[in-house]
Amino acid sequence: MKELFDLFLTFARIGGLTFGGGYAMLPMLQREVVERRGWATEEELMDYYAIGQCTPGVIAVNTATFIGSKNRGILGGIAATLGVVFPSLVIISVIAAFISNFADLAVVKDAFAGIRVCVFVLILNAVVKLGKASVKDALTLCICIAVLAASVLLDLSPIVFVLCAGVTGIVAKVLLAKEGKK
């Protein structure tokens, strides 16, 4: 019970501190889940993000469910997920009820223009960390650059890139390795 509550609280904190959607959650996850709690490794975090891209739903929720269920089974997955959405429910309900023009306030606009800069730098740091863990040789470097370029230049669903990368991995590691042995 205590562990479930722990999952709920940790993910509530992550949800409450994440500004700007799923990707902005990454630095918080690295900090709280990987470094502080050891509930997942950098590699697992990347796996969850890749899977979250091609399964239905919000990436932040998918990742929370994954990490929760890995540590405490189905109940853990539910506890972590409820945690990550809890702050949104409270904050948005309060804003919807009391401050109808919240997003138009000058102070709010200025503050968020500043916060967005910080979110950018935090995500940049996260990308560097992930790059160190995932780019191990020439092929993985190529995949990383190709996906980056393709998602900037082409208007395709990320599912396509994720599937292609998975297939490339299988072809390169399993099939070509067999060829080499012959």
């Binding site: 990707y23 990454l26 590699e43 990347m46 796996d47 993000y49 890749a50 891209q53 995500i123 996260a126 990308v127 992930l130 790059g131 863990a133 995932s134 780019v135 993985t140 470097l141 995949i143 990383c144 650059i145 190709a146 996906v147 980056l148 998602s151 990320p158 890139f161 994720v162 292609c164 990368a165 998975g166 297939v167 490339t168 991995g169 299988i170 390169a172 590691k173």
Partner: peptide, 11 residues
């Protein structure tokens, strides 16, 4: 092995 760098590229 292929997914992880792709995930990094997307991010």
């Amino acid at each position: 092995y292929g997914l992880r760098p792709a995930s990094t590229g997307l991010i």
